[in-house]
């Protein structure tokens, strides 16, 4: 079976654990529980008739004084970069993380998840920011860990891209 390691990265509170839980267990909890270190989950998906075992590394949120150790990313095939659509500062942090990863480990294929798309009234990512992300050439998904919107589609998109690359 094909194995792929995917790291889920982003600032604290953007919904990394919720997205993973929605994808792996089809569960969502309103309660926010701060992640420590890394939690590794697995899910087997079908990509063009091939079984692919995804190893999902749900890594703690990046903070000013608590950087993500790049050792977690060793052997990673892809990155889900999660941004909270209601907090533009998390977009800046996503770019900082990617820059650091690229400096230390080189380019790793990644996609952007603009999460919390169900919170339309609080949405704060404007069209310019969206365009800027699209201009990087990496896929951008509007997701909601709460409703499940685009969650499976985004994980499958990255899995397919990694298998067919």
């Amino acid at each position: 079976m094909i194995q792929k390691k995917i790291c889920i990265l982003g600032a604290a509170g953007v919904g990394k654990t919720s997205l993973t839980a929605q994808f792996v267990f089809s569960k969502f909890s309103e309660k926010y529980l701060s992640s420590m270190g890394v939690k590794i989950d697995r899910k087997t998906v079908d990509v063009d008739g091939k079984q692919v075992n995804l190893m999902l590394w749900d890594i703690h949120g990046e903070e000013k004084y608590k950087k993500i150790p790049t050792s977690y990313l060793r052997g990673a095939s892809g990155i889900m970069m999660v941004i909270d659509g209601t907090r533009p500062a998390t977009l800046e942090m996503a770019q900082e993380i990617l820059q650091r990863v690229e400096t230390e480990l080189g380019t790793i294929p990644h996609i952007y998840l603009l999460n919390k798309s169900d919170l339309t009234d609080a949405w704060s990512i404007n069209d310019d920011d969206m365009q800027m992300l699209k201009n990087t050439g990496n896929p951008v998904f509007l997701t909601s860990a709460k409703t499940g919107d685009n969650v499976e589609a985004s994980f499958l998109h990255l899995a397919t891209a990694l298998v067919t690359a």
Partner: peptide, 26 residues
């Protein structure tokens, strides 16, 4: 310990802090 896949053999020392195991131990 399948999460070590892709990390071995050891090319250089590394540390994986606070890995949450299946029994919820860190």
């Amino acid at each position: 310990c399948e999460y070590l896949q892709g990390m071995l053999p050891i090319q250089e020392s590394f540390e994986l802090p606070q890995v949450q195991m299946r029994n919820d131990k860190y």
